[in-house]
Design a protein around this nucleic acid. Sequence first.
DNA 1: GCCAACGTTGGC
DNA 2: GCCAACGTTGGC
Length: 160
Amino acid sequence: MYWLFKSEPAEFGIEDLAAADRQTTRWDQIRNYQARNFIRDSIALGDQVFFYHSQCRPTGIAGLAQVVSAPYPDPTQFDPHHDYFDPKSTTNSPRWYSVDIQLVRVFNTFLPLSVIRQQPELQQMCLLRQGRLSVQPVTHAEAEHLLNLAREVAESDRRS
DNA sequence: GCCAACGTTGGC
DNA sequence: GCCAACGTTGGC
C-alpha cells in the first residue's frame, strides 16, 4: 500500500532522513487518533510512503520512503520527560504507535502541492480533501499518477 | 499573521 | 451524550 506522511522540514525534512543512520528513522509522536489507527491497523512492512513537506514554502512531496518495521508502540508515550509523554498510556494498552521508515529516494525535483492540485485525477486525494491529517492513505492509482508526475516535473526541469 | 477545518475538552 | 469553547494544523 501507499501512504503520505507529512513532516515540517524545519523539524525533520527529507534531507534529515537521507543523513540518518541507515537512512532510517522512527515515525513517532503521532498524537491524532485517525493517524494512529492507520499506523496501528493498516500500515505494513514494505508499504511505500510519499514524504511530504508541510508548513514551509513551497509545500509538497519531497521524495519516497518505505516502511521497514511492523507497527509498534511509540516509546515516547512512556517517557515522563518527553514532550509527548501520555500519562494515560500503559505498556499493556499503549495508545500511540510508530513505524520505522527508510529513504527510497529524494525526488530529483520537488513536487509542489500547487501542481498536485492541478491534476484532475488527484482531486479525490485525502491530501486535497482533508487538511490536518499527517498520516494518510494514497490509492494505487493516485500513487502511480504522483510518480509519473514527479518524473514529468523532473524532466521539464532538466530541459529548462 | 490570518483563518478555515477539524479535534479535544469539559460543563451540564 | 450534547455542544460551546478552545486548541492545533496547515495553506496562503
